[in-house]
């Protein structure tokens, strides 16, 4: 579904991304992980051309992304931002319905689609006429996902979508997103710095270090056979957390 080849991008004298290639097949979720400045967000943004690569190409369903009008291309790709990025002067329903509106769907169709998505994302329909500032963080992020899905995109891009939420809300949202994706069989690329999130949601994980893709594989493979010290260190935190948890649980059952 997505074929990225030799993507390279510099900002000024800083090389952000170098020679990154990967494929995402239909219905698959690829998580891009790595520390700050590893280039994961830049890679994501080159998929829907929010950033133009210096070299390399992206093909979506076989067609070169660079050959299409950029805003037309983006209407076929859902995009979820960190902190939702809802338009503060538009109501919830206007936010969700924006891409269909740009695509000139008729109003009735938009209204029906908004309603459907609010149900799907477990949003109370009474919120439809509220402004984003009147919603909780979790609700805002759900609206953000609904907005990305509104025009039935073939691909969903998510940039740290749950990063700004408290742990409980984040967990609830991750769970409902996992379920949603299975239902919709969405092709998706997710950028996250949270390894646990990647393990939970991804079919495959790509690890970026200083702009290069150092390993791309299934979560299990990465966990078992990290390709480098860097990847190994990324695993440390979740491993340590799991260990602490296991010990606590062991202590309880042993007592």
């Amino acid at each position: 579904m997505i074929e990225a080849r030799e993507l390279t991008k510099s900002f000024g004298s800083i090389r952000a991304v170098e020679g990154v290639s990967f494929d995402v097949s239909a219905g698959e979720l690829l998580a891009l992980v790595g520390g700050s400045g590893s280039g994961k967000t830049t890679v994501l943004r080159m998929v829907n051309r929010l950033v133009e690569p210096d070299h390399g190409s992206v093909r979506i369903a076989g067609e070169y992304a660079q050959r299409r009008d950029e805003h037309v291309l983006r209407r076929t790709i859902g995009y979820v931002l960190q902190g939702a990025g809802l338009f503060p002067h538009m109501t919830v329903e206007e936010n969700i319905g924006i891409t269909p509106k740009l695509l000139r769907w008729n109003e009735e169709l938009i209204a029906r689609r908004v309603c459907e998505l609010m149900r799907l994302l477990e949003l109370d329909t009474a919120l439809a006429t509220r402004l984003p500032s009147q919603l909780s963080g979790g609700q805002q992020q759900r609206v953000g996902v609904a907005r990305a899905l509104a025009a039935r995109p073939s691909i969903l891009l998510l940039d740290e979508p749950f990063g700004a939420l408290d742990p409980l809300t984040r967990d609830r949202l991750q769970q409902s997103f996992k379920q949603l994706r299975t239902e919709l069989r969405m092709t998706a690329v997710l950028v996250t710095h949270d390894m646990m999130e990647a393990f939970l949601l991804a079919d495959r994980i790509g690890v970026l270090e200083a702009g290069r893709l150092v390993q791309i594989s299934t979560p299990r493979e990465i966990l078992m056979h990290p390709a480098s010290d860097y990847v190994e260190r990324l695993m440390d935190t979740p491993r340590r957390q799991a260990k602490v948890f296991d010990e606590l649980m062991g202590g309880v059952s042993g007592g």
């Binding site: 829907n48 929010l50 805003h71 037309v72 291309l73 983006r74 209407r75 076929t76 995009y79 931002l81 902190g83 990025g85 809802l86 338009f87 503060p88 924006i98 891409t99 740009l102 695509l103 907005r147 990305a148 025009a151």
Partner: peptide, 16 residues
Amino acid sequence: RTLIEAARGVGMSPRE
């Protein structure tokens, strides 16, 4: 800037 980013992300042309 996030809102400009969001506007581009949902597929708005510069005029839109």
